Simulated scan of single mutants.
Amino acid sequence: MGNTHYFLAVPLTSEVKEQLAKWQKTVALHFPFRTWVHQEDYHITLAFLGAVSPKQLEAVRKAICKVANTHAPFTLSLATLRTFGNPIAPRILWQGVEKEEKLMVLQRDVYTACVEIGFSLDKRPFIPHITVARKWRGDDEFRLEEMRKMGESRGSFEVRHVVLYQTHLDRTPKYEAIALFPLLGEKGER
């Protein structure tokens, strides 16, 4: 259980997950990444918390419930594919989303609430993304433009919740939703 960690994220709808998985199945045959993310693990991370004590977990639940109550649901649209790391041997392949100020404000508020509780969070700028694959393993250089020519996922989905996930490295899918925080206009925490 020592490898268990937690993070707060925006979930994707099952329709968008299925669409991304269908795209992934097509391109994975031609682009050898070490790991392709399971469709149930697609999400947009808002704050990575790491290891969390039961007391901290309760503080997170209370703080994020308050944050979620100050935000209304909003829509995100999928954008283009991108990478992190060396472009010819990327560490991460990810699906972008169109710029949406409501997402940026939600992430800022979640981040601030976690810092106020006492978490030390990543200070890099927030880049909203959905990880789809990790660690390029091809013999040749990775060519993002070649992948894009095979088609990209498009579509939109409504953001209605923030989710607290627990990671289980020994499972597939490896992320378990342990708390759901509905945005304003939704029913209370489940």
Rank of each mutant, 00 (worst) to 15 (best):
P128F: 08
P128G: 06
E152L: 02
T75F: 11
E40S: 15
A133Y: 04
A63V: 03
G151P: 01
L169M: 14
I44Q: 00
T112R: 13
L8A: 05
K25A: 12
E15I: 11
Y42M: 06
E100C: 06
E158Y: 00
V37R: 03
R134A: 02
V105P: 01
M104F: 05
L164Q: 15
R160L: 07
P73L: 06
Q24C: 02
V159A: 01
A79T: 00
E40Q: 12
A21G: 07
Q24Y: 10
E146W: 05
K25N: 14
L180V: 14
T26W: 00
V67C: 11
M147G: 06
F142W: 10
A63R: 14
P73H: 00
F142Y: 12
P90A: 10
K66R: 14
L8C: 12
V163S: 03
F74S: 08
T80Q: 14
E58D: 09
L20I: 11
F157H: 11
E145V: 00
M150K: 10
R82I: 01
A63M: 07
S156N: 14
L106W: 01
G151C: 02
R34M: 13
A28S: 14
K99A: 11
E189M: 07
R190M: 09
D140N: 11
K187W: 08
P173R: 04
V52S: 03
L12I: 08
K25C: 10
K55I: 09
T80L: 08
Q19L: 12
Q19V: 08
L121D: 09
Q95D: 09
V105I: 13
H161C: 14
T35E: 07
K187T: 15
H38S: 11
S53H: 06
A28T: 05
A113H: 01
K174V: 10
F31Y: 11
E145T: 13
R108Y: 08
S153R: 00
W94H: 08
